[in-house]
Amino acid sequence: MSDPTVVLDDLRSESDQLDELVRELSDEEWAGPTPAERWSVAHQIAHLAWTDSAALLAVTDADAFAAQVEKALVAPDSFVDEGAEEGAALPPAQLLARWRDGREKLQQALRAAPAAARFPWYGPPMSAASMATGRLMETWAHGQDIADALGVVREPTARLRHVAYIGVRARDYAFGVRGLTPPAAPFRVELTAPDGTLWAYGPEDAAGVPHAEGQGKVTGPALDFCLLVTQRAHRADLAVRAEGADADRWLDIAQAFAGPAGPGRAPQGA
């Protein structure tokens, strides 16, 4: 997607929906635990605010962002948690204001960016559209943690197509970050969208090639696939299916986010 307008509009809608979920919470609810170990609702919003700030820095000051990356490399296992801890210590109203201000500044910066611009990131460089897609994916995923913590069931929307897209595109990254060689051939991924239509990625004949050659097929509800690649639910609890050994392996390790391989979530009832 070369034109970032559509995904930026969807990012704003996704952020606004999450804002509605948290804006009236009590201080006790802000401090309440979420499915992410040691992270409260405040940690989740603080992380989004921190990452929006990092993205804004990448878009507006590449040298300053490079310096931040160097700091992250010194403590790769803790720098994300440290950013969340700092923001979570703020009073909820102040944290909410910080998140709102930061995400709007990022919106404006990405909308104003030249079409051909590429910005540094913790993974490969990103276009404005890719940066917005990544921010939407994270907003949705951390919003899912908050919804689960509050016992809220969110209605899936067509915005999930951005999360699904980045999950498919990150296939080779998921293998590589674990020191594994990515399959040489692409998979066919067919997902049932919230409105019942089909979202398809990869060659139609991928599942028809002998699986020993590395091809395969993944099918299932788009919501379940998005929960899988953002590691918000265990594969055993989702209706995502694989044909072929490589595709099956991918579903065990899939991640749509940059950075170290996450621990994922335990199966329900485990």
Rank of each mutant, 00 (worst) to 15 (best):
L227T: 06
A164Y: 06
P260T: 01
K217F: 04
Y165S: 10
C226H: 03
R241A: 10
G196N: 01
D246E: 15
T157A: 00
L228D: 13
A207F: 02
Q231S: 08
A261F: 04
G167K: 02
Q255A: 09
T192L: 05
F225K: 02
P182C: 11
D205V: 14
G269M: 08
A200G: 06
V218G: 05
A254P: 08
A233Y: 01
R161L: 03
A193Y: 00
A206Q: 07
C226E: 05
L198T: 11
L227V: 11
D195Q: 01
P156F: 04
D195T: 01
Y173A: 10
V209Y: 03
V168S: 04
W250C: 05
T219C: 06
L251Q: 12
R188E: 12
G176Y: 00
R249K: 15
A247Q: 11
R265V: 13
K217G: 09
G244Q: 07
G214Q: 09
G216K: 12
V163R: 03
V240G: 07
A270S: 15
A206D: 09
A236K: 13
F257G: 02
Y165G: 02
D237N: 11
R169W: 10
A247R: 01
F187R: 12
Y173E: 11
D195S: 01
H234D: 15
T219N: 03
D172L: 01
P194M: 02
V229R: 11
Y201F: 15
D246W: 07
P210W: 10
L191K: 00
D246V: 05
G259E: 10
K217M: 06
R188T: 03
V209R: 15
G202D: 01
G167H: 04
D172E: 09
A233G: 04
T157N: 00
A242P: 12
L223H: 02
A212Y: 05
G196V: 02
V168H: 10
D246A: 15
G196K: 01
R235K: 14
R169K: 14
A164C: 08
Q231A: 13
G179C: 01
Y173M: 12
E155A: 13
V229H: 11
A254N: 13
R159N: 08
A184N: 03
A266C: 00
L238V: 05
G179E: 01
L198V: 06
A170E: 08
V177T: 08
R232Y: 09
A270C: 07
P182M: 06
P194V: 01
R159P: 00
V189M: 09
D248H: 06
A270Q: 11
F225L: 08
L227C: 09
A270L: 14
A158Y: 00
R159E: 02
G208S: 14
A212C: 02
D205H: 15
F225A: 10
D252M: 10
G214I: 09
Q215I: 00
A158Q: 03
T230Q: 09
K217Y: 08
Y201H: 14
G214E: 09
G262F: 06
A206T: 10
P210N: 14
G208P: 00
D224Y: 10
P263C: 01
A164H: 06
L228V: 12
A245M: 05
F175D: 05
T181H: 03
